[in-house]
Amino acid sequence: MSTAGIERSHRAILFPGQGSQFIGMGRDLYHLYPRSAKLVFDEVDEALGYGLRALIFQGQQEVLKLTENAQPAILTTSIAMLRVLEIEFGFDVAKACNYALGHSLGEYSALVATRSMSLTDAVRLVRLRGEAMTRTVSSKNIQTAMSALVVRKGRLPELEEAIKEINEKLPKDELVALANINSSFQVVISGTSKGVDEASRVLQERRFAARAVDLPVSAPFHCSLMKEAAQVMEDALQNVIFKKPCVNVISNVTARPYANVEEIPKLLVNQITSTVEWQRSIHYCKEEDVEEFLCFGPGKVLANLLKKEYPLDCVKSITSADDILRHTEEYSSK
């Protein structure tokens, strides 16, 4: 297929974070596309030195969802889907897109997609990232939690201010932080169990949030409790070579494209303890006239958020071989 049909400006490519994993993801691509998807899974197994592919395709969900497994698994599957589109159908990220961004660990996928870092380096880093995040909490021997909150219409700014106020009033050893601002109607809070519970209660009492749902995660991501994990990643990232991305990659921390290559490892370290500014990252894309979002990887969380926030935009999900065939036909007909 010619790339001419898919050369179009005002498009962003997106990659998911942890939570979108499931047993069997990417298996259809592995068997259908030996010169693209299969090579990705094989490269990752060699890089990690164990059978991640076997775990993804036929393992147990309880094992796959462990942070140290889920993160490299999602990155691998996401990149396999992109590589099929590139190698088999002539998709060119540099020509077809204006921006690339990923949610939390998905930022590493975006950097691989834009040829800023190698797949081998990326999967090793996110494996280490997952291990460090889990180990940081277990070493502290404290009860932690994360909760997703439905934000009432127009109350996001007030909710952000309230989180700061609540945190200041908590006892010395308790804390709560905004882990993710996913959209104008959804945030995730993170911290100690008591801190998260208190924040959930107050935010609902003040009618900033409609309800809270506890998340089954192994660590309180994106808060100051992750400082030790950030230090581990800072040391590891010093040994990785980054190149200038072929397309602007938007940082979770700043909600802006990286200003230079030197900024990439610094912001990846900061990301571990900082809020994932997803809503503002998408808003930046909208200010830059992006009207089409192409979501690679397992699950449709990011696509569903976008469709609810921007119902008139073109949002497409690449989650399977069927999706790839359907969307390449659409592109080639333009």
Rank of each mutant, 00 (worst) to 15 (best):
residue 115 R to L: 09
residue 27 R to I: 03
residue 7 E to C: 08
residue 268 L to N: 02
residue 40 V to Q: 01
residue 75 L to C: 11
residue 189 I to A: 06
residue 172 K to E: 15
residue 228 E to A: 12
residue 72 P to Q: 09
residue 93 V to D: 04
residue 255 A to K: 04
residue 25 M to C: 07
residue 16 P to T: 04
residue 116 S to W: 05
residue 163 I to W: 06
residue 88 E to C: 13
residue 13 I to C: 08
residue 321 A to I: 02
residue 1 M to F: 14
residue 284 Y to V: 04
residue 277 E to D: 01
residue 127 R to S: 14
residue 296 F to E: 04
residue 244 K to L: 10
residue 106 G to F: 09
residue 34 P to S: 04
residue 179 A to K: 09
residue 215 L to F: 07
residue 48 L to T: 00
residue 262 E to F: 01
residue 223 C to L: 04
residue 323 D to N: 15
residue 10 H to D: 13
residue 197 D to E: 15
residue 86 E to A: 07
residue 158 E to T: 03
residue 58 Q to S: 15
residue 33 Y to R: 01
residue 111 L to P: 03
residue 158 E to L: 14
residue 256 R to E: 13
residue 297 G to M: 05
residue 19 G to Y: 06
residue 42 D to A: 06
residue 224 S to F: 01
residue 125 L to W: 10
residue 155 R to P: 01
residue 168 E to V: 02
residue 36 S to D: 06
residue 322 D to F: 10
residue 166 I to A: 07
residue 189 I to T: 06
residue 122 A to K: 13
residue 11 R to W: 00
residue 143 Q to L: 15
residue 118 S to G: 14
residue 325 L to A: 06
residue 325 L to F: 06
residue 306 L to W: 14
residue 17 G to L: 07
residue 294 L to C: 02
residue 192 T to F: 10
residue 258 Y to H: 12
residue 51 G to A: 14
residue 37 A to D: 06
residue 268 L to T: 05
residue 137 V to Y: 02
residue 176 V to M: 08
residue 243 K to H: 14
residue 44 V to W: 00
residue 224 S to T: 12
residue 285 C to A: 05
residue 48 L to M: 12
residue 252 N to M: 03
residue 115 R to W: 00
residue 70 A to I: 03
residue 8 R to M: 05
residue 35 R to W: 00
residue 228 E to N: 09
residue 131 E to T: 14
residue 58 Q to R: 14
residue 125 L to F: 08
residue 199 A to R: 08
residue 216 P to S: 08
residue 95 K to T: 04
residue 89 F to V: 07
residue 166 I to N: 07
residue 89 F to T: 09
residue 224 S to Q: 08
residue 156 L to K: 09
residue 207 R to P: 00
residue 328 T to N: 03
residue 279 Q to C: 11
residue 84 V to G: 12
residue 33 Y to K: 02
residue 255 A to R: 05
residue 6 I to L: 10
residue 18 Q to S: 04
residue 284 Y to K: 02
residue 263 E to Y: 00
residue 258 Y to N: 00
residue 182 N to Q: 13
residue 215 L to H: 05
residue 86 E to L: 08
residue 80 A to G: 08
residue 76 T to V: 05
residue 126 V to R: 12
residue 283 H to E: 15
residue 193 S to Y: 12
residue 11 R to N: 01
residue 15 F to C: 06
residue 39 L to D: 02
residue 117 M to L: 15
residue 43 E to N: 12
residue 281 S to E: 03
residue 296 F to W: 03
residue 189 I to P: 07
residue 184 S to N: 10
residue 294 L to F: 13
residue 115 R to H: 12
residue 156 L to A: 09
residue 64 L to P: 05
residue 193 S to T: 11
residue 183 S to C: 10
residue 227 K to F: 03
residue 106 G to H: 10
residue 205 E to C: 04
residue 180 N to R: 11
residue 51 G to Q: 15
residue 231 Q to S: 12
